[in-house]
Computed example of a mutant assay.
Amino acid sequence: MIREAKISDAETIAPLIIQAMGALAYKFSNTSDHNATIKLFEHFFKETNNQYSFENTLVYVNENSELLGSLNAYDGAKLVELRTNFLDYLSTHHGLKNFNPEPETQAGEFYLDTISVSPAAQGKGIGKQLIDAGIILAAELGHTQVGLLVEVDNYKALKLYQNKGFQIKDEKKFIGGSYHHMVYQIFS
């Protein structure tokens, strides 16, 4: 079952966000300390008005109420607004002065930021259900395009997104990495 996230999901969701982001998460926390990075994303998950907030997260729970996956998604037009609190906090508490990552999304796009499934639950279609839920949410909110970034060498994820109907639109550089910018068109 997919439901909206709750603040109480923070301890389970933070590691999933980090799993989805990989090395980027540690660039944001400005440390290789895994626990400090988890604490950073727990903090922002519990807060409002930021990219990684519970407000912008859907979760997958099984019949035993175990949280096994998450999708963080939002209106691309709100990127600057959602990023401001995050970047200000990183500057003040994590020493990232003048850190201004490239925009990963833009107006006119509902952006799937992080999609992650617990390692023990992978291969069971949970990721596909989360992607579908993101597309449905985008349509309900009136969006006609859903976007995401996938590392150019992440062939498994690339194939999954292509099988779900996403197409490569262009290439983007983001915090030193190369990504496919993929889009899904919603037709009414």
Rank of each mutant, 00 (worst) to 15 (best):
I38Y: 05
Y184Q: 10
L112R: 08
L24W: 04
A121W: 08
V152N: 10
V146K: 13
A23E: 15
Q122T: 14
I186G: 01
E47A: 02
L40D: 09
S29Q: 04
T57I: 02
K124N: 12
D132K: 05
F187G: 10
G123W: 06
K39F: 04
E81H: 11
I186R: 01
S65D: 12
Q106Y: 03
P103D: 00
V146A: 07
E63P: 04
I13V: 12
G76H: 02
Y155E: 15
I136K: 15
F41E: 08
E109S: 07
E140M: 10
K128M: 09
Q167I: 10
K46F: 04
S178C: 04
G127T: 06
T48N: 04
A77D: 06
P101M: 02
F45D: 06
P15V: 00
M1E: 12
D113I: 04
T114M: 09
N64L: 04
L24M: 12
Q19N: 06
N62W: 01
T57A: 05
A10S: 14
I175V: 12
A139P: 07
D113V: 07
M182E: 03
V117K: 06
T114P: 01
A25K: 12
L67F: 00
M182D: 03
Y179A: 08
K164H: 14
E102V: 12
S116A: 14
S178P: 01
S29D: 03
I17H: 01
I135H: 06
Y60Q: 11
S53T: 03
A5Q: 02
H34C: 12
N50E: 10
N62M: 09
F174D: 02
L87N: 02
E55G: 02
A77V: 06
D9K: 05
Y89I: 15
P103T: 00
N100Y: 01
I13N: 03
Q19F: 04
K6T: 10
S118L: 13
I38A: 02
T105L: 12
E55I: 01
A120M: 15
A120C: 14
L24Q: 08
H180M: 02
F174E: 03
T144L: 07
S188D: 10
G127N: 07
F41I: 08
L79N: 03
I135W: 04
N35T: 06
T57E: 00
I115S: 08
A107Q: 11
A36L: 13
E171H: 08
L67H: 06
I168G: 11
E109D: 07
Q185T: 15
N62I: 08
E102G: 08
N85L: 06
H94E: 15
A120G: 10
A121I: 07
N56T: 03
L67Q: 07
G134H: 11
S178H: 07
Q106M: 11
L16I: 00
N50V: 08
D132G: 01
L158G: 00
G22A: 13
K39P: 01
N98Q: 11
F99W: 11
P103R: 04
